[in-house]
Design a protein around this nucleic acid. Structure first.
Length: 447
RNA sequence: GUGGGUGUAGCUCAACUGGUUAGAGCACUGGGUUGUGGCCCCAGAGGUUGGCGGUUCGAGCCCGCUCACUCACCCCA
C-alpha cells in the first residue's frame, strides 16, 4: 500500500469524534478547578534521564517501552510516557514548593509508549492527570478519589468500580516482599512461567496474574495488610473512613499493586469489565519519594491519571454521539442570487450564526437535499425574483412552512428565532436549552 | 519482542468445490417538478479484490513473502 498513513498506534481523531473529547476535557477542567487544581502545561519531550530516574533504570518501561531518541546534538530525549515526572520536574525547577498557593496541578494531553497497540492501548494516547504536592493527610487521598468519582459521574460514566489498596511504606513493604517471596518460592513450580519470573523481579505483581491456577495458589498467600506498620495502617484506615463519610463507594483490592517503586501507601484504580483486557480507566497513588528522588525537597505527592481513549470508549457504549447541525442553510438559484446569498451568509456569521450555503450552481432540489442532510431547522431560499424585490423565503424544515421576509433584516430575524445574537454561543448546558448546536443527549443507559 | 485473527467500492458485507464483464445495501451525483428536503422510482459514477511473487489453461479464492489493521501475551507509566 503506497498511500500515506499515520504512524502505527497513533490515531487521528476525526471531526465526528472530537465532540466526545471536547466534552470530556470541558468536564475535567470544570471539576478539577472546582477542587482547586490549576492547569500546568509541560513539554511533550523531556530528557530521558527524567524518566529513567523517576521510574527506575532497569525496568522494562525504560529499557524497551519508552519512545526515546538521540537528538542531533547527541542528547537522549524521550516522548513523555506519563506526565507525573514532568510535573515534578517543573515543580522542582521553578521552586513551586515555595508557593503555598500552588500545590494542586492538572494536565491534559498526549503521552507516548512504544508498544504493540491493542484495544484501548495506543502508542500515542491521552491522559487527564492530577497531582497534589506537599499534603500527607489521608484526607487528600480520600478527596482525590472522591473527585475522580465526581468527574466520572459528571461526564456520564456508569458501570465502573473504584478499587483501593495500600502498599505500605518502603520499610514495611520490604519486610512483606520477603515474606511473600518465600511463600511463592515454597510453592515451587506450581506457578506459570511468568509468575516464576515475577516472584524474583517483582513479587507483588504475581497478584494480578491472569492465569487462574496462579490465582488459586494466592488464596493462602500472606496479605500485605497484615504486615504494614502502624503508621501505614492508621493512614489507610483514615482514608477508608473519609471515603465512607463522603459516600464514595470502593472495594479494597489487594491486587492493585502498581508497577513502580515510588508508589507507597494508597493506590487505586477505576476498573470496568467492558473494555476487554485493558480494564483500568484510570488509576493513581501516593508517591512520597518521587520529588526527592528527582532532586527536590522531601515533599509528599499523590496523583492519578485517566486514560481518555478508554473513557471515551465507555461513553460511546452508553451514549449517543452529539450531532452538530448548522443553524441555517441558504439555497440560491441563479448567479446574481448566489452572490446575494454569499453576502447574506457572511452577515449571518457576523451574528454568530452557523450557516452554510451551496457554492456551486446546482438545482434547487439538490440544494434542498443537501440542506436536509446537514440538518438545520431553517433554510433560506433566494432566487432572482426575491432578490429583485428585496425579499427572501424562509422555510422551516420541521414545520414545513414557508414565509417571505425582507432580505435586509434576514440575518437579524434568524438570530432572533435561534436565540443567538452574539458571537458567543448562548448555550453552555448542552441539552438544556434546546439549542440545536450542541446535541448531547445526556442520556445514560440503565444497566 | 511473542502468538492468533482479518484485509473485496467511501461504509457494512456477498461471490457454490479455483471458472468468463467481482455484486448488493447504505452513502454519493444527475433526473422524475424549466424554483422546494425526507419516502418512492429511474439512471450514473465509484474496485489494479492491501502489495509482490508462485502454482494453474484459469486465482478474490490455493501457497510463500511483505505491509496494514485487529485481539491477546510480556509489561503497565
Amino acid at each position: 500500500m503506497e498511500t500515506l498513513q499515520a504512524v502505527r498506534g497513533m490515531n487521528d481523531i476525526l471531526p465526528d469524534q472530537v465532540g466526545w473529547w471536547q466534552r470530556v476535557e470541558r468536564t475535567a477542567r470544570e471539576v478539577l478547578e472546582n477542587f482547586g487544581y490549576r492547569e500546568i502545561r509541560t513539554p511533550v519531550v523531556e530528557k530521558l534521564d527524567l524518566f529513567s530516574r523517576g521510574i527506575g533504570e532497569n525496568t522494562d518501561v525504560v529499557e524497551k517501552e519508552m519512545y526515546a531518541f538521540e537528538d542531533r546534538s547527541g542528547d537522549w530525549i524521550a516522548l513523555r510516557p506519563e506526565v507525573t515526572a514532568s510535573i515534578a520536574r517543573s515543580y522542582i525547577q521553578h521552586k513551586l514548593y515555595a508557593d503555598p498557593t500552588l500545590q494542586k496541578f492538572y494536565a491534559i494531553g498526549p503521552m507516548f509508549r512504544h508498544e504493540r497497540p491493542q484495544k484501548g492501548r495506543y502508542r500515542q494516547f491521552h491522559q487527564i492527570d492530577a497531582e497534589v504536592f506537599g499534603i500527607d493527610s489521608p484526607m487528600i487521598d480520600a478527596e482525590i478519589m472522591h473527585m475522580l468519582r465526581i468527574f466520572l459521574e459528571k461526564v456520564g460514566i456508569s458501570g465502573v468500580t473504584l478499587h483501593i489498596n495500600t502498599l505500605g511504606c518502603p520499610e514495611c513493604r520490604k519486610v512483606y516482599r520477603e515474606v511473600l517471596k518465600r511463600y511463592l518460592t515454597d510453592k515451587g513450580d506450581e506457578f506459570c512461567p511468568d509468575c516464576m519470573r515475577r516472584r524474583e523481579t517483582n513479587p507483588l505483581r504475581v497478584f494480578d496474574c491472569k492465569v487462574e491456577r496462579c490465582q488459586a495458589f494466592l488464596d493462602g498467600a500472606p496479605a500485605l495488610i497484615e504486615y504494614i506498620c502502624n503508621d501505614c495502617r492508621t493512614h489507610f484506615d483514615a482514608v477508608m473512613e473519609m471515603l465512607d463519610k463522603l459516600g464514595t463507594p470502593y472495594v479494597v483490592d489487594p491486587k492493585i499493586v502498581r508497577g513502580l517503586d515510588y508508589y507507597m501507601r494508597t493506590t487505586f484504580e477505576v476498573v470496568t469489565d467492558r473494555l476487554g483486557s485493558q480494564n483500568a480507566v484510570g488509576g493513581g497513588g501516593r508517591y512520597n519519594g518521587l520529588v526527592q528522588d528527582l532532586g527536590g525537597p522531601e515533599v509528599p505527592g499523590i496523583g492519578f491519571a485517566i486514560g481518555m481513549e478508554r473513557l471515551i470508549m465507555l461513553l460511546q457504549q452508553e451514549q449517543q454521539a452529539a450531532v452538530q447541525a448548522p443553524d441555517a442553510f441558504i439555497a440560491a438559484v441563479g448567479e446574481h442570487a448566489r452572490t446575494g446569498a454569499f453576502l447574506l451568509l457572511q452577515q449571518m456569521r457576523a451574528h454568530g450564526l452557523e450557516v452554510e450555503m451551496e457554492f456551486e450552481s446546482r438545482s434547487l432540489k439538490s440544494q434542498m437535499r443537501r440542506a436536509d442532510k446537514l440538518g438545520p431547522r431553517f433554510v433560506f431560499i433566494l432566487g432572482e425574483d426575491e432578490i429583485n424585490r428585496g425579499e427572501i423565503q424562509l422555510r422551516d424544515m420541521q414545520e414545513k412552512t414557508q414565509q417571505v421576509l425582507p432580505l435586509d433584516t434576514a440575518a437579524l430575524t434568524l438570530s432572533q428565532m435561534i436565540g443567538k445574537n452574539s458571537p458567543e454561543p448562548v448555550c453552555s448546558e448542552p441539552g438544556q436549552c434546546g439549542c440545536a448546536a450542541q446535541g448531547g443527549s445526556g442520556t445514560v443507559s440503565q444497566e
